[in-house]
Structures are given as C-alpha cells and as structure tokens.
Design a protein around this nucleic acid. Sequence first.
DNA 1: AAAGAAATGATCGATTTGATCGATTTTTTT
DNA 2: AAAAAAATCGATCAAATCGATCATTTCTTT
Lengths: 280, 280
Amino acid sequence: MYSPRQVAKAIGVSEASLKRWCDRGLLPVQRTAGGHRRISKRDVLAFVRERQQDLHDPTVLGLPETTTKAQATHAPEALIAMLLADDENALRGLFTSWFLAGRPMTTLFDEGLSPAFHRLGAMWQSGAIEVYQERRSVELCRRALYELTLLMPEPAADAPLALGAGLQNDPYELANLMVEATLREMGWQAETLGTDLPGDTIAAAVATRRPRLLWLSVAGVADEAAFVQAVDTIWQACLEHKTRLAMGGRGLSEALRGKIRYTVYCTQISDLVDFLRSTA
Amino acid sequence: MYSPRQVAKAIGVSEASLKRWCDRGLLPVQRTAGGHRRISKRDVLAFVRERQQDLHDPTVLGLPETTTKAQATHAPEALIAMLLADDENALRGLFTSWFLAGRPMTTLFDEGLSPAFHRLGAMWQSGAIEVYQERRSVELCRRALYELTLLMPEPAADAPLALGAGLQNDPYELANLMVEATLREMGWQAETLGTDLPGDTIAAAVATRRPRLLWLSVAGVADEAAFVQAVDTIWQACLEHKTRLAMGGRGLSEALRGKIRYTVYCTQISDLVDFLRSTA
DNA sequence: AAAGAAATGATCGATTTGATCGATTTTTTT
DNA sequence: AAAAAAATCGATCAAATCGATCATTTCTTT
C-alpha cells in the first residue's frame, strides 16, 4: 500500500491533486484507523493505464521487473540484469529517481555500479558473457550518467573546479563519470577530460584550467615505469598550482602506491566525498 | 511534460491557438485526471520540426538559447572554435536548431563535424593544441549527440534495427555516434555497441540481435592481417543472418578494401543514407 | 475589389492545480 | 512504554487551465 505522497511522486503530480482525485472516486483508497489514505499498487496501475498517465518515477512503486524494495534495486545483481537485458529506460529511471529522492550517489556507485562492473568484467573473462555485452553495458551507464548530470542544478559560477582523467592504456572510463556525477551532486564544477591521456597533457590541463581538484582513476597499469613517471609529472603540476590530486581504482596496488605521490587515495567514491567535506 | 502556456510561450503563439492545435490532433496531448493538457517535449519538437515553426523561447523547454539562432554556421572553423572554447551550449544549440530546422543531419556531419575533427587530429599531432583538448572536444560532441537522440521521436516498435561498432585498436567513436543519430533521424532503431571490439564479439551480436544493418567505421588499421580476419568473421555472420554490412571511414584505403567483403562502402554518412533509401 | 472562409488572439466564468497552514496520525527512536 | 520525528489530514488561497464566445486578421474564392 502506498501513501498519497508516494503515488503523487510516481505519477508526477502534486499531492493535493492526487488527494482530490481520490476523494472524487477516480482512485480507490482504503483508510487507516486514523483516517490516512492508503492506495494499492494495483489501483495505481489501473488508474495510470486508464488515464494514460505516464509514470514519472516508477521506482517509487517498486517497478520495474524486480519486486524488491527501492533499497534493493541498486544491488549489483539487479543492475547486471538490467544491463544484460539492454534495458536503458530502467537504468535511467533508477538513476533519476535515486537523485530526485535525495539519496547520495556514492551509495549507488560504490555499492551498485562498481561491483556490478567488476563482476561483468569477470564474466566476460571467464566466457560467461560476450565482450560486446560488457561494452554495451558501459555505453548504457555512460548515457544514464550523462542524463543524470543534465538533471542536476547548474553549478554556481564561483563553484570550485575539478578535472578528471584516465591515464594512457587505461580505457576504463566509467569511474570517471561516476566521480563527475558525484562532484556535480556536491555543487562542484566537474569535467571529465577523457581517457587514454599521457601524463604531460594532463599536467598541461592543470596548468591551464587551474582546478581545485584533479582525480585520476586507475583500472590497470601496463607499464609501471611509465605510469610512475606520468603520475610524477602530474604531481609536480598539481604542487605548482595548488591542485589536490586524488587517486583511486582497483589498479593501484599497495606496492605501486608507495612509488607515487598524491594528496589522497580513495578506495571508493565515498572516500573522496568524505575527504572533500572534511577539508572544505 | 509541459502545460499549454509553456509550450505556447516556447513556440511564440497564443495559448488559444495552441490548444486548438492540440484538439485537432496536430499535437499529441495527455490529460490529467482533471482534464488539463500535458505535452511532452519530444512531441513539441516533432511538431516544431514538421510545421517549420521556430522556437521563440527555447529556454522554456530546457534548450539552450542559441537554439533560436538558426545561423547554421556548420563550417568546420566555427565548430573548432566552439569546441576549443569548451562551449557546450553553443554546440547543443547548433545541433538542436539544425534538427528543428529540418535540415539533414548528414550535411552537418559530413561538411562540418567530420572535417573539424580531421583538422583537430592534425592540430594535436603537430602540437598546435594539447591532446586533452581534442579528447575534451570528443566528449562535448558525444554529449551533444546523445541529447540530440533524446529529442528525436522514439522509433516505432517495428522499426528496423541497426547496430554500429568500432573494431579493435580503433578508438575513434564519434563516427559511430554520428551514424546512430542519422539513422535515428530516418526512423531506425539504432544502437552503438561500443569501440575497440574484437570481430567475433561483433559477429556474436549480429547472431543475437539480428539487425537489418551493421555499420563499422574504420579510423585506422594497425594490424592489417588481423583487421582482414576480423572483418571476414563479421561478414560471414552478416551473410548468415541477412544483415547488411556497411563500412566507412578514413582508414579504409582502396587497397585494403580489395581484401575484405561488405555490402556497401561509404565515403561519408550521406552515402549510407542514399544506400538505405534506394534499397528500402 | 468584394465576399466568404479559416485561423488567430483576447476574454469570460467555472474548474483544476499546486502550495501552504495548524492539527492529527503514523513511524521511528529512545 | 514514552518521546521525538516524520507524514498525512482537511481546508484555504492564489495561480493556472478549462471550454466557449467573439472580434480581428489572414487567406481564398468569386
């Protein structure tokens, strides 16, 4: 059973209108002992179907396919199911409703999307799925994340600037987009430069754009010497322009971390958020 | 969803006329339970495009102000200036205004965007710009193209399916997105699988999804033998499932073309459109 | 040029919508 | 079980929209 507020949010109308529709008999309601309205999912769907309303936020009603609660819909299993089913709309609906509900994006990313893609990577390496299915999943998430940033308020003109990048031979770009969305949620002006970039061009970007923060996500390191060299170049540039350097990603082993310098290391995106909140 | 007043302001006509257009079926409307009209952005834009209306105030619909200026400066120089200035709104405005004016997207792509990125590539190879500037430009275009497809009418359920992909060691993905937008403009159901894909996974996608068309864009060929092998694998899959194979891109030399088989070769996107129109 | 048809824009009272309020109920926490 | 927090109640009000009517403008036909 759902409250008028939930149903109103799902349909995309004001709570007042929804209550009036109930009182006019357009939507069947039950009442609690105290007089509060309670509406069944079945009646909502019948109403939506009859009136050809579109569900502005289906996840409020526990849709789509999975009948679990909204908290569980960001579980890696659910995301993998959506992605392999090529269900872009379900993904978009999940992202937008998540944001509109005011939930922290880091939860969705750290507990949902990152584990999901970690498993997808293992799945195509073991032959359980085709490579194109993993790539297509990345594409779906990229688009959903982009649409999400479009829904967010524009950052203030004096908002701090953050740049993100991926190093050469490190094509995994989803982490960058998740960080960008997270920073945008925090009110920052965040931009992803791109992936497969050499260290000196990232350093050049730091010198030109003067960001408050530069984040690098490292999925894997092919040439360790070149990697250390690149990060050092970037670190020097960050030092010179007072840019904080945040690093993260599964490719950063403890041994490797000992050979480079940075401002903060993050095992997950929420670490970066905590770091920024504590130093603001 | 927008109210008649909002849409009327966006188009620049009286509210009364807009309501009459809705009642005549020129503009699809949904109704609230109380009988108020609600109009979707997609339908507004389709209406504007068909009726050759101009958007008097695009900002009401969340579109950039520059959408109204149909200056149509699609010259590569103008595009390069926008991209290097990181002017996402100008780019979005150009794309949407071009689409709303009913001009063929192929003109914008073949005469504007492709030459622009060809020059940008030469510019960073010669050191005139930094690599990150080129990558950032790709990012801007990717987002603008994605938003464009969101503004287009949804393809019919029985619309033919087309898949696009980039082969391994061929990271240039913009061509794929331009083809996707063009096919969507033609009413197709078009999807970009991703880039850097091995031949057999593309072949597997053909076998699974059964598209009417598969397009491959080739920016450069590193290993010629592997390339020929990959295309042959794909060609066999296309033959088996009656999928047409379209190839294009600057990386396809005449000599290389002699060693592979395909349905049609396109020097530019308009060639693909002509091919599809003539065989429909 | 004159007459007729059609579309447009403005206006009206009635209705709908969305926002707000203090009082009450439900849920969560202690 | 009691207290605190959050959600919902019913009611009210300003703004928006409804359908309809009526000049005015624009286009077509005579």
